[in-house]
Computed example of a mutant assay.
Amino acid sequence: MLSATLLIVAIVVIVALVFDFTNGFHDAANAMATSVATGALTPRRAVALAAVLNVVGAFLSTEVAKTISGGMVDDSFVTPEMVLAGLCGAILWNLLTWLLGLPSSSSHALFGGLIGAVLVGAGASGVHWPVIVSKILLPAVVAPVVAGLAAALATRAAYRVMRGADREGGARMFRAGQTVSASFVALAHGTSDGQKTMGVITLVLVTGGYQASGTGPHLWVIVAAGLAIGLGTYSGGWRIMRTMGKGLVEIQSPQGFAAETSSSVAILASSHMGFGLSTTHVASGSILGSGLGRGTEVRWGTARRMAYAWALTLPAAGAVGALAALLTRLGTGGSLLVVVILAVFSAIIWRVSRRAAVSHANVNEQSDVVVLARPGADSVADLPEPETATSRR
Results as ranks from 00 to 15, higher is better:
G209T: 08
R163A: 13
G237F: 13
G247W: 05
A171C: 07
P43N: 07
W98K: 05
L312E: 08
Y210R: 15
A307E: 09
W300L: 12
T34I: 07
L6Y: 07
R354L: 11
M244C: 10
R299Q: 13
M173S: 14
L337A: 15
V36R: 00
K66W: 07
A165V: 01
L330N: 12
A361P: 00
I341R: 07
L92I: 06
R163C: 05
L337E: 12
G334H: 06
L84S: 14
A40K: 06
I201K: 09
A10F: 13
A109N: 03
G331T: 03
A343P: 02
S278E: 12
T280W: 07
W129H: 10
A122F: 00
I91Y: 00
V363T: 11
A10N: 11
L203I: 07
V204W: 03
G333M: 11
V161F: 10
A124M: 09
S192N: 15
A325G: 06
A381L: 11
N362A: 06
V265H: 03
R393F: 14
S235F: 12
G321R: 13
F174S: 15
L268D: 09
V36I: 15
T38L: 01
V73Y: 09
A147K: 01
G333N: 11
V352Q: 12
V83M: 12
A65P: 05
R163D: 14
A317W: 07
Q178W: 06
R172E: 11
R167V: 06
V249R: 12
T191W: 01
C88M: 14
D75F: 04
W238Q: 08
G214N: 09
S359H: 05
G256E: 10
I251M: 04
T79H: 11
G194A: 13
A343D: 12
S271W: 04
T38W: 00
L41P: 00
T34W: 01
K196R: 14
L110S: 02
A357Y: 05
L277P: 03
V161L: 14
A29K: 06
I348R: 07
E63M: 04
R167P: 05
L137S: 07
A165T: 04
R239C: 08
Q366S: 10
G293H: 01
A373E: 15
G289H: 03
L41I: 02
A373Q: 13
V339K: 10
G321N: 12
K246M: 13
L203N: 08
I267R: 06
S284R: 10
R299F: 14
L312P: 00
T202I: 04
E365A: 07
H218S: 14
V340W: 05
A188M: 08
T261R: 00
I8S: 14
L53D: 03
V204G: 09
P217M: 09
G70K: 07
I251S: 01
A303E: 09
T279D: 03
D74K: 12
S213A: 15
V352S: 05
A122C: 01
